[in-house]
Write a protein that binds this DNA or RNA. Sequence first.
DNA 1: GTCGGCATAATTGTATACAAACTTGTGACC
DNA 2: GGTCACAAGTTTGTATACAATTATGCCGAC
Lengths: 228, 228
Amino acid sequence: MTMTDSKQWTTETVAADLERAVHEHRLPPGTKLGEDELGEAYGISRTIVRAALLALSHRHLVELKRNRGAFVAQPSVREAREVFEARSLLEPRTARSAAERMTPAALDMLRANIAQEHEALDSGENGRALFLSGQFHVELARIADQSTIEGIISELISRSSLIIALYWRRRAALCETQAHHALLDAFAARDGALAEQLMKSHLLDLVASLDLRNVTQPPTSLREALQR
Amino acid sequence: MTMTDSKQWTTETVAADLERAVHEHRLPPGTKLGEDELGEAYGISRTIVRAALLALSHRHLVELKRNRGAFVAQPSVREAREVFEARSLLEPRTARSAAERMTPAALDMLRANIAQEHEALDSGENGRALFLSGQFHVELARIADQSTIEGIISELISRSSLIIALYWRRRAALCETQAHHALLDAFAARDGALAEQLMKSHLLDLVASLDLRNVTQPPTSLREALQR
DNA sequence: GTCGGCATAATTGTATACAAACTTGTGACC
DNA sequence: GGTCACAAGTTTGTATACAATTATGCCGAC
């Protein structure tokens, strides 16, 4: 995308565009997001770019360093654990609610999502597959009819994408769709208790597939990182 | 406070100042927050004010209406229910963790908080009491050593303050400190299970003390509100 | 040859100017 | 007398200019 489109970019659309790029791992953690650079890319002034970066920083997807600029966030091991702790408090119960409120239309949406994810994986679009996998979780909150929780989960999912970029161990891409398939069955059966349990396991599996030993920790300072 | 202080206001301090004013009910829901007005009050340009308002809008404390300006948010009954639903998923388990990690120093902080709240209530500073009551909950997440959850709860607490401003039913100011006292005992005993249960009840009591019937709903439009 | 200081360049922080949109008040026409 | 159209004024939206800060490259001193 050459970005020289005649599209009218707003703070929200720019922020959404950037968030998706981060979510799909097209913008890796640590990437510098220069204001002039982005402004020129989108064909807008720094004013809008700054507002979008501010929005992303509030979602913890971008880190603003004073007088230094904006960078795609690099969640610490600590933060990674905390994000999944929060998800484990919110998502299982939300999955239960979703199961109890499941409708045929919602079920179709979820099936379509999984199908799209398979497509993406088959054509090697790993970033897109990861994004769709996240959308599955957000969709559940929407089905549960909890827009506030949906907003929170949406942020946690995006942050999880950064965490995966940094700490993913094996590329067991299957486990994702497998877990979602199992959840789908529970939803089809409107089995809330099962859905809650499956989601709980799913999140534990996710954390287990990360390498969260404090060893390769964030280079807090170059001083620390280099002097052995 | 005449605001003509020589203090150097930044985006963050202005946002924090405004958030506290909202939290303490000095700025009621629906209040217009004009940019020029605020800029003059703090002695800064609209640039900083806009950034602060943007931050508050991301926390759902301020509603930005395009070409209309910023207003202190007026959570709907729907949103009120959702906020307490989210809190009920996060806070009980967080209270349990806090109890398990409780230290003498943390216990003293909580005791001091309750004491300050009593002071405020005695001197009729209801807004300050409400703020301190909220701080108690945020402090628990800090003690649980979950800064991510702390951030989420902090926002939910501030939104709860708006909800209370709109939907509070009876003046049972006591119930708050009573519940916090009970929690304190559980913390002193390091009884995680009890703390979790008490927090669950506390939140249910809070919701019960609200008038969330859809009757006196938000005047979606004046048209609706006036033609009987 | 290396270290330190200084100057230059680049980038972000803030204020302000101007454009666009909405609100409100006035007046003419029905 | 009421309604609609238009115009003035106010407020927000966006771009840009300038200031402040940081990064970088250069040069001289040791």
